[in-house]
Each structure stands twice: as structure tokens, then as C-alpha cells.
Amino acid sequence: MPDAPARSDRPAPVGVDPTRASIARVYDAFLNGKDNYEIDRDVLHKVQQAAPEAQDLATENRGFLIRACRFLASQTSITQYLDLGSGLPTAENTHHVVQRINPESTVVYVDNDPVVLAHGRALLEENDHTHFVADDIFEPDALLQNEEIRRHIDFSQPLVVLQMGTLHHYTGTRAEAAAIMRKYIDAMPSGSYAGISHFLDPENELSKTAREMEKFFIHSPMGSGSFATKPEIEALFGDLEMVDTSVLGNPGVSLCADWWPDGPRLKELNAAQRTIAGGVGRKK
């Protein structure tokens, strides 16, 4: 994908520091969005030194989110979605996908980035079934007791929990990240689903590229963005029953690009597309 076009940065909303990189704004820059600043685009340009196609990390993550939500909305009877670390609104958000299939589906977005909070308020105006809550997704004990979340999500009924491109920004250990996800899984009733995507170290000839991108992410002003092996990503799902993937023909974590793609592949995957993976698991 081409670099984001040059632009003039607009005045920052109240509470937003344009001199510090933001995970949400960096992701927006990767998607060629307009809600980012020079400091955020600098992260993108540095990561592109390791992988020129680095923006495809974001586009594959977004494509996986869309396909997973479309599957869950059309193939299950679940009508409530908890989207953790939702980031900035794009052209195709979770509520757009699931409410197109079932307009009565409830979507609760959770984030604590000031720039996301500013934009999240606009989502509240779209319909009565879309909500935005400010909270820390890496503090599940507090989040799961958040009164506003519980006002819209019934934890006695099956729900979908989404951690799309979020856990690789947790700066603790792999075991701690798995423990965070374990608390969300424990709170999900039987019949619920979880969707997770994560930067991948494929443990092959692309491992060096993955670790180079990781170095640029972690040592950038953003300060996070770790790459995990497939077993480490699978550990985040705990004992959930994994949904099969169409390309690999077996359940588990796969490249985001391989998770039920929209059609036959005509082009070979590039390095970035081969270093982000995800999966969907069901609680029995």
C-alpha cells in the first residue's frame, strides 16, 4: 500500500497530546486515515523500514475483524458484542457489520484513548444499539464491573468479546496477557465467542522481519507492539473451542489473511500479511 498522503495536522481535541504517539492514531495512519499527527506517521515510516508493506498489518487485521463479525452475526444467534480497544472509527466498524445483518444487535465499544473518546461520542448518535464506554481493557476486574457496560451487555446470555489487535500492545508478560484474557473468558457464559488477532512471529524466514518491526514499534514514541509465536497466540484462547479456518482446513489460529478469505487468492502474501494472525473460539 502507498504511504499516507501528506496533510496539514488539525488542532488537537481537548485532552489530546499531538506530540506523543497514540496506538489508535498510529493504527489510523496505517489505514491511511485522517485522524493522526506527524508523530504517529513517523511510527509508520519507521516500521516500513523493516517491511515496506507494513500497512497491511492494519488492513489484514481490519479485514479479519469484518469477516469474523459477519460470520458471528450470520451464523449464530448472538446479538451482543463487546469490542475491546476499539480504536478510531473507520468506514466499516463492528456495529456496521453486525447490525447490517441484525439491526437489533448491541455493540459496546471500550477504549480509554482521549482521541478515541472524542470520536466515540459520534457513534452514540448513530443508533440506540451502539454505545461507547471509557475504560482500560487491560484491567478486566474493573471493566467487567463497569455499570455502563453492564447496562448494555447481559453477561448471563452469550456474547462476543473482541480483542482485535489489542493484546500485542500489552507491555507485560505473555503469561499476564493470557491471564487478562482468561478473566474475560471466565466472564463469558456458555455459547459465547471470542475473537483475537495479534502480531505474529511465524518462526521461519520472516522471523527476522517480524522482530525488526517489533523493535521499531517498541522503541517508537508509541512504545508497544510485540510479536508472538502461534502457540503463544493460541494460549490467549485458553480452553475455547476454536472455529475451523477454510484455507488450513483445521481449527486454530491462522494468518488473518487465511481466515475464511472472501475469494480465491490471486497474489502471493507479502511479509506484513504473513506476520499477523488471529482466530475465533467458542466457549462450550
Rank of each mutant, 00 (worst) to 15 (best):
P5N: 05
R7W: 06
P11G: 07
A12M: 02
A12G: 05
P13I: 08
T19L: 02
T19V: 07
S22E: 01
R25W: 04
V26G: 01
Y27V: 02
Y27Q: 10
D28S: 10
D28N: 15
A29D: 10
D35C: 06
E38A: 11
I39C: 08
D40F: 02
R41F: 03
D42K: 14
V47H: 10
Q49M: 13
D56H: 11
E60N: 09
G63S: 12
F64G: 02
I66P: 01
I66Q: 07
R70F: 12
Q75H: 13
L82M: 05
S86C: 13
G87S: 08
E92K: 07
V97D: 01
V97W: 00
V98H: 05
R100M: 13
I101G: 15
P103N: 01
L117N: 15
L124F: 00
E125G: 00
E126C: 02
T130Q: 07
T130A: 02
F132L: 03
V133L: 01
D135E: 11
D136N: 15
E139V: 09
P140W: 10
A142G: 11
L143M: 15
I149P: 14
R150V: 09
R151H: 12
R151S: 13
H152F: 06
D154A: 08
S156G: 14
L159F: 13
V160H: 02
Q163W: 07
M164E: 08
L167V: 13
L167P: 09
H169V: 07
Y170K: 11
R174V: 08
A177V: 12
A178I: 13
I180F: 04
K183W: 02
K183R: 11
I185E: 05
I185K: 12
A187F: 15
P189E: 08
S190I: 09
S192N: 11
A194E: 09
G195S: 14
G195F: 04
H198I: 10
D201M: 11
S207F: 09
S207C: 12
K208S: 14
E212Q: 15
M213F: 05
K215R: 15
S220Y: 03
T229P: 00
P231S: 08
F237R: 05
G238P: 02
D239R: 11
D239S: 14
T245Q: 03
G249N: 09
N250D: 06
W259S: 00
W260K: 01
P261S: 02
P261Y: 01
P264Y: 00
L266Q: 03
K267I: 01
N270V: 04
A271R: 02
G278A: 01
V280N: 10
